[in-house]
Design a protein around this nucleic acid. Sequence first.
DNA 1: TATGAATGAGGCTTCATTCAT
DNA 2: GATGAATGAAGCCTCATTCAT
Lengths: 215, 215, 215, 215
Amino acid sequence: MTQVDTTAKVTKLNRVERNAWTKQKIFDAATKVVGKYGYAEASVARITEQAGVAQGTFYNHFENRQELLDQLLPKIGLDMVEFIRARTGTADAARQEIERFAAFFDFIREVPEFLRILNEAEFFAPTGYLKHLDNISTAYVRILRRARLAGAIEDYSDEEFEAIVHMLMGSRGYLSRRYSYSAEGVTAVPEHVISAYRKLMTRGLFNAPGDQDKP
Amino acid sequence: MTQVDTTAKVTKLNRVERNAWTKQKIFDAATKVVGKYGYAEASVARITEQAGVAQGTFYNHFENRQELLDQLLPKIGLDMVEFIRARTGTADAARQEIERFAAFFDFIREVPEFLRILNEAEFFAPTGYLKHLDNISTAYVRILRRARLAGAIEDYSDEEFEAIVHMLMGSRGYLSRRYSYSAEGVTAVPEHVISAYRKLMTRGLFNAPGDQDKP
Amino acid sequence: MTQVDTTAKVTKLNRVERNAWTKQKIFDAATKVVGKYGYAEASVARITEQAGVAQGTFYNHFENRQELLDQLLPKIGLDMVEFIRARTGTADAARQEIERFAAFFDFIREVPEFLRILNEAEFFAPTGYLKHLDNISTAYVRILRRARLAGAIEDYSDEEFEAIVHMLMGSRGYLSRRYSYSAEGVTAVPEHVISAYRKLMTRGLFNAPGDQDKP
Amino acid sequence: MTQVDTTAKVTKLNRVERNAWTKQKIFDAATKVVGKYGYAEASVARITEQAGVAQGTFYNHFENRQELLDQLLPKIGLDMVEFIRARTGTADAARQEIERFAAFFDFIREVPEFLRILNEAEFFAPTGYLKHLDNISTAYVRILRRARLAGAIEDYSDEEFEAIVHMLMGSRGYLSRRYSYSAEGVTAVPEHVISAYRKLMTRGLFNAPGDQDKP
DNA sequence: TATGAATGAGGCTTCATTCAT
DNA sequence: GATGAATGAAGCCTCATTCAT
């Protein structure tokens, strides 16, 4: 990911760098705090304490609390997109979808804060949530259209794609909540979850392949 | 629904009845308030004002604010189950699933508060949310197993059913958020959403039928 | 004055009385605090501390800080009007005006907080200030018209009366600031201030009398 | 007025000049800000932003915020004295007073910031206010004594003059607040205000003339 | 001298909960 | 059981001032 390592020693930074550095510290602190306690408990006091700066400093970098909260998801969401893209091979469309599905669950283990940030955003950071949703669904619909063009999908209209994408996102959300949380952090999803997803998708959405062996 | 008519005249009630009556008033008020403003804005002051009782009265009937909030979803959730069951015919399993899907969207128009209560509950009333999820997924898995017994579904294990059910619930959640909200209230979902769902399910989950004409 | 004696022992008060009592305590505390430190320093914390109640209590009785501040001047202003009226005799119009002038300075010695509350209100409690100004100038214009009717004033139109009244109020304001403040509280104005006022008014506004001996 | 044109291009200035220039920019910015928003809203941030300098720069030129605020009124006040003097003719003393009165209202239209700076100074810049008051009343008393020497005023002592001057200043203050403010800026006072003032003064303070036709 | 980020005290307000009547 | 005023902790944000560059 692009996350700056905030634990590094501060050596020689000019003004601009120090400024960016502080903002990043606050941002990372917010990620941690929201990931751990949720948006509702992510008070400015808690965030700045975690960041190791004064409360007032917060307002030198963000207009207000909400502005920061609304930036959280879109930013990490892009990291996720990049992560998933990197994990997607060149197999047939159906297999690729399974890879994306699996990569999603890999990502939430790499960035365990993401899950909570994603799930709660709708209610605590609606602006950021919409932005994220738009980011994702646009990209996803494009993928599906490309698959249709390649003949891997038939009989779905563009409008239906949009609905499908929301089902895919909703599925991941609910599955992650059900299967990824545990007492001590985020865990991998069981194999049968992936196989159920594979069956539903390869049979319901794609033409044939992908539905034989596990990847 | 089982909602008591709180507008009726209070005539002759004995002590026990008056007590239950007050509790119900608070409960209904909470439903309205949460449905309209969300859990976060559902202060005890607002709920009791809506109920027409004093703030202190609240604590004669509920241990604390959270206890009430956690009861909201499970109670209405059961209403929903009942509503959907009543709308499910005797057609083949695939068609029934489409009926259930459609009935869900009918229900949220009948009880517009439900959507918000459902969607926010996960974060504001986690205990109630888990209870609801358990209620629903248990019932749903039972339905799927029955369909498998009847030969309408093949090749899915019980564990996979549970995963599927979460996908179904997640799909509904995301679709409802995307397509049912509008400026003035809750609206019907577009036809293409239902058709996309039908295609995905009948092809991906069930054997053959259901995927021809619209029901 | 109508000010309740807030130092009295609380004996047996019913709910309504206790409520009014608390509100009065806050009101009186605000009077003291604003009188001593000015509106700008009259924080809710300071007022409630002076009143001996919790900060939260404040908001059970006033919508917000400003609402209380805006009530301060009009309320005390009416006390002042009453005070002055009681001190005005039945002499000729010019003499009565001198009596009012003197009574004003007596009042600010009786209620030393008044001066600051009055003078600062324009900027910190504009709503209350306008209300007060209206209260006073309406009453004052009425007095002048009556004097004109009685033949004690000639050659001034109603519009001019309004201007005159503002000059009278402005005069008192500036004079009080110049001559009434001192290191330890509010003091009487020197005799020559009153005589200057008497000369200006009896010669400039009224016909003849009043301008002979001091009252 | 003596206001430096802060919009001029900065060409070749030596160190001392640049220094004075910066200070003047801050000063003018403060005048604008206080005139428009009042002292309370005149934060250092706002002033420096308006001046186009950094916040830190402020403290290279002024000890603290209050020091600047206290300089505002006396400085502009002297501009006003000069302005009024220039508008005062050589007529009899009573007429001259009316001219001064009118010139005051002309001035506040030329420098619309003045009104607010003057009116609020008492509470937000007390030190500066006292200095201003002293400036004005000293000059004014001198004028009145000269008129007395010339026979235009009789029967007022020096002490009474001081009181009279405060009445004059107070009158102007209240009248300006009542009649000069409007939705969009500072406007001329109605004719009847001037006539009322003329009557009161020429009859109450001066001997005879001045009180016939309008000047 | 100019800069502007950092500081932290302090202000207003909300709200779940308690408790005397 | 019903009432509603009282409580006080906690939240967000502003702002004068400092200080390292």
